[in-house]
Design a binder for these strands. Structure first.
Lengths: 156, 156
DNA sequence: AGTGAAATGACCATAAT
DNA sequence: ATTATGGTCATTTCACT
């Protein structure tokens, strides 16, 4: 199950997390391989699900999303079916740019964007707080990004 | 300052957030442009900082990071200089895969990974709690990812 | 290593301002 | 006229066998 990662694989993963659009030939140069084996390894890493995909990181403000926030949700104890439906709903909201179930005080953390404070209010009031099984919703606006989404470290 | 986004730009942004490594020619086809103007637009979007970069999304577990957590930090009132040093330190930790300053109860949220619970403990105890200006540190482990890092919505 | 595909840059066309 | 849009073609570079 747990695939062994060669030193080349690790160098590929390190490099491609930093520049997901680097041409294979350039990547090959950086990791010290010829183009052909480098491409084979890259494809294998994708195939094995170790590389899950590639995304362009886009400035939310350029797309008109002035507000970014984290929403902390506490759940009531409730029938398991509700939980599933809640999760499906959360996944469906386009404002939700990431969402995790947590251990501890807070049950669910939602990373969200909104065009402005008003539409964020509409989102939390009408579309989060009204979800069945939700006991409490607290929001904190992002004031600044100290460190943007960053690579997972890759040891040698 | 605020660049106008053409319908083509929006289609490019929508597509490339979903597949950051799509070949330009394919991208051009999807957005209904010839390759050359498509590439010009893509480069301009990068140049203008609207596209901030490209990353491969890598499975943290494949790299040996069994633990993912959010850490909530409260600060003491303190001299402004401390704040700057704190932020620099946070940025420097490789365990920190994202970090934001928040408005509200919690001052800073840290998204972190660790190889195991022990090393996560070492990280919070020795490298977070000891930072000057930190009043309180609380951690919640990620139990499951409900929605992984997702695109910013792009309206037409 | 070779072949077909893709990236890239120079240049042209059209339309709206 | 100028700006913004997109297309065509020729050349280099790349992906993949």
């Amino acid at each position: 199950m747990k695939r062994h990662l060669s030193p080349s694989d690790r160098r590929i993963l390190r490099t491609i997390q930093g520049d997901g659009r680097i041409p294979n030939s350039t990547l090959a140069g950086k990791v010290g391989l010829a183009a052909s084996p480098c491409l084979r390894r890259l494809k294998a890493l994708e195939e094995d699900g170790i590389i899950q995909g590639y995304r362009a990181m886009v400035d939310r403000k350029a797309l008109g999303f002035e507000v970014e926030a984290f929403v902390f949700i506490k759940l009531e104890q409730s029938e398991p079916g509700w939980r599933t439906r809640l999760v499906e709903r959360l996944k469906g909201y386009e404002e939700v740019i990431a969402c995790h179930a947590l251990a501890g005080e807070v049950d669910i953390i939602v990373h969200a964007v909104a065009r402005d404070i008003e539409s964020f209010g509409e989102f939390t009031m009408n579309r989060l707080l009204t979800l069945p099984g939700v006991a409490d919703v607290r929001s904190s606006f992002v004031l600044s990004t100290i460190k943007p989404q960053s690579p997972i470290p890759v040891s040698d």
